[in-house]
Structures are given as C-alpha cells and as structure tokens.
Amino acid sequence: MAEEESDHESERLREELDSSLEHGVRDENGLPSKYYCFKFCQVVEEYAGRWQVPLPQLQVFQIALCCFTKGTATFPAECEQIQYVLSSLALSFFELLLFFGKDEFIEDPLKDIIESFQECYTTLARYKNVYLKLVKQIIKEGGPWENPVLKAVLKETPQPQETVDMYLNSEIPAFFEIRVRYLLACERIEEAVALSKCCIPHPEVGTNLYFHQAYLTCLFKASLRDHLHKEMARINSKDAVEIICNAEREEKDEVLLGLCRAFLIQQLETGNMYYIWDLIFIWSKLQLRANSSKQDFLEECQQLLLAATNVKMIFPFMKAIETELGDEGLQMKKVSDRAMPSQDWRCCAP
C-alpha cells in the first residue's frame, strides 16, 4: 500500500513538472525558461520536503532531474536560470549521497538512481555545469567518502601536503563544507575537526570561514583552551565577527558568548582597534542575553577592560554601557577609574 502511494506521488510530481513547462510564461525567445525554472524549484522543494529520510528524497530528485533534462532539451546552453537549477540539483544529490556507502551504490534502488543521473548527465553535459560534473566524478569514485586522500585525512594519517592540496583543488569548497556539516550532525566530531583543519590552510578552500567556525566551536566544546587561543590568533577581527554572526544560527548562546569573549580578550590584549566596536557590540548583546543583571554586566566590562592595552578601547565599552543601561552607564567612570591605573596604557596613533 505504501509503495502504491509512493508511485502515485511520483506520478503527480512528474505531472506537475511537465505542466510547469507546458503552461509557463514565454520569454523573448519564446521559451518558458525563467518561469519554468522558478516553478520547477518550487515543486521539487515541496515534494522533497515531505520526506525526512534520504532515499525517498533522492528519488524525488531523480524524477526531477529526468524531467528537467527532458524539459530543457530546447533551451539555450547559456541560460542562467538553468545553471542555477542544475547547481542546486547537484548539491542536493551530493548531500543525500553522503548517507550511503560504496556497497549501496551497486544495489537497487540506489543503483537505479545513479544510472538515471549518469544518463541525464550525458544530455546535460552541454551546459558545462561544474557542480554536476563533480557529482558525476564523485559517483565514479564510488561515493563522496571513497577518495583515498579524504579517507586518510579523516583518519589523520599523514599525507604529503601536495597530495592533500591536489585533492582539495579537485572539488569546490561547498562540497567539503557539506561533508563537515554532515559529520558534525552525526557527532563524528574527530573526523569533522580533521577535515576542517585540513581545509583551513588551503588558499581557496580556506577562505570559507565555516571551516574556522566548525573547528573553533569543536575546540571550545572540548575545553581545549590552548588550541582554541592558538587558532584564534590567526583570525582577524573582521573574520571573527563574521564567524560569530554565522554561528548564531547554529550554536547555543553559551558557545557564542564564549567564542566572542575569547576573540574580544585577544583583541584587547593586542591593543588593535580593528573591528573592536563590532566585537564589543556583539559581546554586550550576548552577555545580556545570557545574564540580564546590569550589575554583572558592568563588572564584566570592568574585567575585560583590565585586559586592554589601548586607552581608546574604553570608548566602545562606554557606548555599549550607555546603549544597554542608559543613565546607569554613568557608572562607567567608576569602572574606568579602577581599570586604568593597573594597566600600561598605550595610546595608538589614529
């Protein structure tokens, strides 16, 4: 009965996707490319969202890719909307393939899905979509976990840097980020840390700050303070602000506050004003979110100021206290009077 219902749903999906093409609004070339691509994504997202397990979702994307291949047969190769849809489909395929091992690739129903993908790729190759091409290559290797260099990285087996760099160059940063997210979701923390550490030094892949975010949060949660501070020292304040803001969507306030405070102390100790206003603003919001006590907030400001080596750093604290506490911010004078005499204040040139 469940299989019959699944067949009916698959047929409804095909009908909706075909209908989007037939009744789409035509562009200046007489093609419904923009409308079709928009409606296509909408329908596929709706059907895929009905499932919470990978195999049925993959089957949705299998049908979607087959329909899209047929529907875009007459579309121009340089169509921007098609590139977007193909990239999205490829990323979805890749993300869902993470749940399967090499042995499952040669058994139905996954075997049938992969064969469909390869058949569609033959037709879609004219679009020269990088994401689609990479998924094809990964399938050829036996899946997203089968590359021997990746296996060595996850096991922290020493590899020549040149070999690691060649592997990282062979894919796009998004694929490595998706792998790290998957590993963290599965609580395979050591492997997630190993892969993040591998990606961070790479000149291209390492520009994706998510790898820093993942590595730092793992170090913080493991209470590895020395490693945490060493890693933070390599990150400038602008990137630190971005990391904390991005992490807010995924981490608890305790982690966010801990990371922000550690970044802030590092900046205070160096006396560098770069993005200090932003760091203090974010810290103040997180601190009061974790503890609404005004007195505790003032005391925390005092403790942080004790680490400052630049007298100018008092001003963003004054602004934060004034913003958060209003008239009670006048107590800042008491805080600064107590903090400044104990420090070797150095006024930096503007």
Rank of each mutant, 00 (worst) to 15 (best):
W277R: 15
Q267S: 13
V153D: 05
R346K: 15
E171S: 13
L304Y: 10
Q42E: 15
V53P: 00
L58F: 04
I243M: 12
A339Y: 12
L91F: 08
I172A: 13
Y47A: 09
F317I: 07
K294M: 01
P144R: 07
L184Y: 03
P32L: 01
L219F: 01
Q303A: 14
E22M: 00
K136Q: 14
L306E: 14
F175E: 02
C79I: 10
L31F: 07
S10C: 11
R181Y: 07
R50W: 02
E46M: 07
P158D: 04
E119D: 15
R225M: 12
P350W: 14
K334S: 14
F105K: 01
D296Y: 05
I172T: 15
H212V: 02
C120G: 00
F176V: 03
P201L: 05
Q137F: 03
S170N: 06
F263P: 07
Y215R: 14
C37Y: 06
D278P: 03
W283R: 07
N310C: 02
V135I: 05
M318G: 07
Q343M: 15
D103Y: 01
I235E: 10
L305C: 12
E107M: 12
Q303K: 15
E9D: 15
I138P: 04
F61G: 01
E80F: 08
N147M: 06
F93S: 06
M1I: 01
E300H: 13
F38L: 13
G71H: 09
A240N: 07
V205H: 04
H202Y: 04
S292P: 05
E146P: 03
L257I: 05
D253K: 12
Q59E: 14
Q81P: 03
R289D: 08
E204Y: 14
K238L: 10
L132K: 06
V85Q: 06
I282W: 01
Q303N: 15
E204W: 09
L86S: 04
V255Q: 00
T323N: 13
E11C: 00
E242I: 11
P56C: 02
Q42Y: 10
Q303L: 15
V149I: 11
E187N: 14
L154F: 07
A90L: 05
Q213F: 10
I113Y: 10
K197Y: 04
L216C: 07
H212F: 13
N272S: 15
F100E: 09
L91E: 13
P316V: 05
A262P: 03
A90E: 01
Q267H: 09
V311N: 12
L150C: 03
M1P: 08
Q137A: 13
T72P: 10
L209N: 01
H23W: 12
A339Q: 03
L110R: 06
E231K: 02
C218N: 13
Y210L: 06
S342G: 13
V60K: 04
L13R: 11
M340N: 12
W345D: 11
N291Y: 08
K333C: 11
L264V: 02
F68Q: 01
K221G: 09
N236L: 01
